[in-house]
Amino acid sequence: MTDFIQACIKANEEIAKALEDGFDTSLFEKTVVGAGGDVSSRLDLFAEEIFVKYLASFGHIESEESGIIGEGESKIIIDPIDGSANALSGFPFYGTSVAKVNQDGILDAAMVCNLVSGDIFFKAESKEIQQGKLFSTLFHEPSVVPNAEIGLFEKAYANPLLVAALDTQGLKFRAPGAIALSLAYARTVKYVLFMGTFRIYDFAAGLALCEGLEVIVEEDYVIVSKEKTVAQKIEQLIIEKKQ
């Protein structure tokens, strides 16, 4: 395990430890519009501060909340709280995502953490993707569910026609509201679908963890599945709805 991945784990463990007994009321306060276009909460900024503490020595940080922080040849892309609306609503599906791009422009490390369950997924350099738990030293290949019955559809609420089309094809889904986490769990569901504006904070780490799966990335949608036929069927539905 690289020093960078170890630093990511330590940052996530500190955040998880701080939140394990619930959120201080001050963390719910909204502040200003962040670099990613959403209004940042004090929870987002709290998590960002911890990531900066642990990761600033590895390069400059590009955060969804504060934009560019620090300096260095490598770029570290972070979403301090993936699914912050979930977190601030008491819905237990939120986490963090971190991706590191080296001085040659190559993404050489990625981590996504579920702060609720403690699941962590990471990949460093050319090594295999690993899954484990916070506060544990045991890691393994990512869990796979071969005959999953549901997919995950992020931004489903904004795409009613596609929702209806998926239903006609029997492609059940849930819409949990944290895209990096959804991508990290792609091996345990039938598919992951995102419709909307592609933001690097949302996808850098998550897509890196989908290596070996069928991945379709276009300007306004992303599809990931273990099954090529499923990914192609969903893309065809999207194309038909655009016509």
Score class of each variant (00 low, 15 high):
residue 3 D to E: 06
residue 4 F to V: 03
residue 6 Q to S: 14
residue 10 K to I: 14
residue 12 N to K: 08
residue 14 E to Y: 09
residue 15 I to V: 10
residue 16 A to I: 02
residue 17 K to E: 15
residue 19 L to V: 11
residue 21 D to E: 14
residue 23 F to M: 12
residue 25 T to A: 15
residue 29 E to Q: 15
residue 33 V to W: 02
residue 34 G to C: 15
residue 35 A to D: 14
residue 39 V to C: 09
residue 40 S to P: 00
residue 41 S to I: 08
residue 42 R to Q: 04
residue 43 L to E: 05
residue 46 F to S: 09
residue 48 E to T: 03
residue 48 E to Q: 04
residue 50 I to E: 04
residue 52 V to Y: 10
residue 52 V to I: 14
residue 56 A to G: 10
residue 57 S to L: 05
residue 60 H to S: 01
residue 64 E to F: 04
residue 66 S to V: 08
residue 68 I to W: 01
residue 69 I to K: 00
residue 70 G to V: 06
residue 70 G to T: 00
residue 73 E to I: 03
residue 74 S to Q: 13
residue 74 S to G: 11
residue 74 S to L: 06
residue 78 I to Y: 13
residue 81 I to H: 04
residue 82 D to M: 08
residue 83 G to A: 13
residue 88 L to F: 07
residue 90 G to H: 07
residue 93 F to G: 08
residue 93 F to Q: 02
residue 94 Y to E: 06
residue 97 S to M: 10
residue 100 K to Y: 09
residue 103 Q to V: 07
residue 104 D to L: 06
residue 107 L to G: 13
residue 108 D to G: 04
residue 109 A to W: 08
residue 113 C to K: 01
residue 117 S to Y: 12
residue 120 I to M: 13
residue 121 F to Y: 14
residue 122 F to P: 06
residue 124 A to D: 15
residue 124 A to H: 01
residue 125 E to N: 12
residue 126 S to C: 01
residue 127 K to H: 15
residue 128 E to Q: 09
residue 131 Q to Y: 12
residue 134 L to H: 07
residue 136 S to R: 14
residue 137 T to I: 12
residue 144 V to H: 12
residue 144 V to K: 07
residue 145 V to E: 14
residue 146 P to D: 06
residue 148 A to G: 02
residue 149 E to K: 06
residue 154 E to I: 12
residue 156 A to K: 08
residue 162 L to S: 09
residue 164 A to C: 12
residue 169 Q to G: 02
residue 169 Q to P: 07
residue 170 G to T: 03
residue 173 F to G: 11
residue 174 R to D: 09
residue 175 A to K: 01
residue 176 P to L: 14
residue 176 P to N: 11
residue 177 G to D: 03
residue 177 G to E: 03
residue 182 S to R: 12
residue 183 L to D: 00
residue 184 A to R: 02
residue 185 Y to T: 09
residue 186 A to K: 00
residue 187 R to F: 13
residue 191 Y to C: 07
residue 194 F to C: 00
residue 198 F to C: 04
residue 205 A to F: 12
residue 205 A to C: 12
residue 208 A to R: 05
residue 214 E to G: 04
residue 216 I to K: 03
residue 218 E to N: 15
residue 222 V to K: 09
residue 223 I to F: 06
residue 223 I to A: 01
residue 225 S to D: 04
residue 235 E to A: 12
residue 235 E to G: 08
residue 238 I to T: 07
residue 238 I to C: 05
residue 241 K to D: 04
residue 242 K to D: 06
residue 243 Q to R: 14
